[in-house]
Design a protein around this nucleic acid. Structure first.
Lengths: 343, 343
DNA sequence: TGTTAGCACTCATTCCGGTCGAGTGCTAAC
DNA sequence: GTTAGCACTCGACCGGAATGAGTGCTAACA
């Protein structure tokens, strides 16, 4: 079966109409709304073809047609290919510049949800490739040290560590000096066993302490476990009747609330993301999570500079306004790009 | 109208039955379920009295009765007066001891939600009365300082500050020493203008810098703005049909998601909480927020020691199991009590 | 060969009337 | 004061008729 220009225009018309109304769209509607000036009967013939091709279905006999996942996929792919997409302007897009990434991302999620009317999620950046900038050990109690670690982008992390062995004031001082001179500017990957051995021998204090300190440092900038996920606008999904029927709404909100699952998803996806464009669309069954089988998810990877990358996701019904969402995400990307980079 | 023992037993029976089923309860049901051995007709007479007193209503003619807010209030007040309440044991109540209060509270909220099947919220502690324990200024960049503030309970806060004026290494060293000796052990309230003047004169460096640093310290331990609120189990409300009808579920979840409103509520409530027992019950209309008009909220104030107090709230339908909830909260309170105190 | 008008058909939705049953209020008897 | 009996109310449920949007198919038309 040939997929000619007219069929595509009809498919597009169906998708766009369904996007607005959420109702199955009939042949008459298409016949009037498009500028093809074809009668409903002709449209019906074409629609029969489109259905045969698996791009649209009717939810029940004698109802209008709605697009299938495959239909959306075709539409989205064509849309993504059109590079002449204009960046949609955003209302109220003013996020105050703060030094806390966390707050920034939280606001960003909120803003995105308000602008798109979909649910949003945004993950904190991973620090994989990030360079250490500053390490400071301070005595807080007799046998309690506070380790403060600053990485590039001025992200601050800290942990408290209980010492098994006493450390003198002088040892602490030299340890601080040693750590800063040796580790500064290195990424986590670059701190290998050889370097650790090297440090241990040079420290002049017991190896246990060094080991403990390094563990704390690693702990402070650990990525997997406490990668934060911020969500917003979960209740937006109530705006789409096709998601509120049954318990899809409930399970969806559950997934958004319990961030663990989202985190795993993102970590799985992130690794396979192509570094290029970065914006990806997952439609219905393409999502691994069952709770999102009735949704589409658009993700984008942001880069705060210095290899600190995270993911933004927009979760909505399959009939979401892909064009707007992709545009919005691109505009956000450009805002985020290097937002925390040194000026 | 006299409220004798028998009426109270009937009211209690109605409330408890309604608690389980969520359906209006009829006279026959009461007649069989209680050990009063009265016929349904007698119960009907009593129920008519109870209705006249405004303790129960029928949702429509010829339906069973359900308790009113006033009825619940009576029930709860009597229950709270019974001090011989046994502490309900909790399943899976093992929160790993962590040094991060945040994580701890988050887990706590989750655990509570899982145990009670209601939605829960828990606020981070306020630091009003908290004493400073340790201050550390470190140079990160040429004109960027990192201020790390540790308060009692080993809560760590930090901010980055940009200096308008250069500070030498020696100045930094003496500043650290000065700050620690002068401010250690003081609460925020105790750092007044006289003390600041004193510091400025002793510092031997420009007053601007002192001012900037103190602002940063104040900023780091500021309480109002970024008091965190952790919620969990929001989707539990889907388990109660009377909350899912209409858009109450939606607006409820919205309120839980958008923590701002909760924060304001808690801040309002907290101030008027009597320091004694601490557990309070708000039924239906007693809540200031319209989105919670169909709910009851049970709150408790916890004390981590050193005056770090916060609030735990459990949000459920009016027919929530007050007895269990109050018991659970009390058990949690005893766990939390001084959990972060130095041993 | 592509397009269109007409027509019969399908099927979800809505409305309506009837039945059912749980529950009540009232009265009279115990 | 308690209970049995009875009429009454009203929501819930069910089945059928009416409605209407939308389709597929066929035949006519350009």
């Amino acid at each position: 079966m040939e997929l000619d220009e007219r069929k595509i225009r009809i498919l597009t018309a169906i998708i766009q109409n369904y996007q607005e109304t959420g109702e199955p769209v009939g042949s008459r509607t298409i016949s009037r709304s498009t500028d093809l000036s074809l009668s409903s009967a002709t449209i019906r013939n074409e629609m029969a073809d489109l259905e045969e091709m698996g791009l649209i279905v009717q939810p029940h006999t004698s109802a209008g047609r709605i697009p299938t996942d495959k239909g959306y996929r075709l539409y989205v792919d064509r849309m993504m290919a059109d590079q002449k997409r204009e960046v949609t302007e955003m209302k109220d897009f003013f996020v105050e510049r703060v030094d806390r990434v966390e707050l920034y991302l939280r606001q960003m999620a909120k803003m995105l949800a308000a602008n798109t009317n979909y649910a949003t999620m945004i993950t904190g950046p991973t620090y994989n490739q990030t360079k250490l900038k500053f390490i400071q050990l301070s005595r807080v109690d007799a046998n309690k040290l506070l380790a403060v670690v600053v990485v590039e982008g001025n992200i601050i992390k800290n942990t408290m560590l209980d010492l098994v062995r006493e450390v003198t004031e002088e040892e602490l001082l030299s340890l601080n000096l040693l750590l800063n001179t040796k580790l500064n500017g290195l990424t986590m990957q670059e701190i290998n066993l050889g370097l650790i051995k090297d440090l241990e021998s040079q420290a002049g204090i017991h190896a246990d302490v060094i080991r403990e300190v390094l563990d704390a440092v690693a702990d402070a900038i650990r990525v997997d476990e406490d990668m934060q996920v911020y969500t917003s606008g979960a209740t937006n999904i109530f705006k789409y009747p096709e998601l509120t029927g049954g318990d899809t709404a409930q399970s969806l909100i559950s997934t958004l609330e319990d961030k663990r699952e989202l985190r795993e998803l993102v970590q799985g996806k992130l690794s396979e993301t192509v570094p290029g464009e970065g914006i990806q669309v997952y439609i219905g069954e393409e999502m691994p999570m069952t709770s999102m089988r009735d949704c589409s998810v658009v993700t984008a990877t942001y880069d705060l500079g210095d290899g600190m990358r995270g993911t933004i996701g927009i979760i909505g019904p399959k009939r979401m306004d892909y064009e707007k969402v992709v545009g919005t995400l691109q505009s956000v990307m450009s805002q985020l790009d290097g937002a925390f980079k040194e000026k």
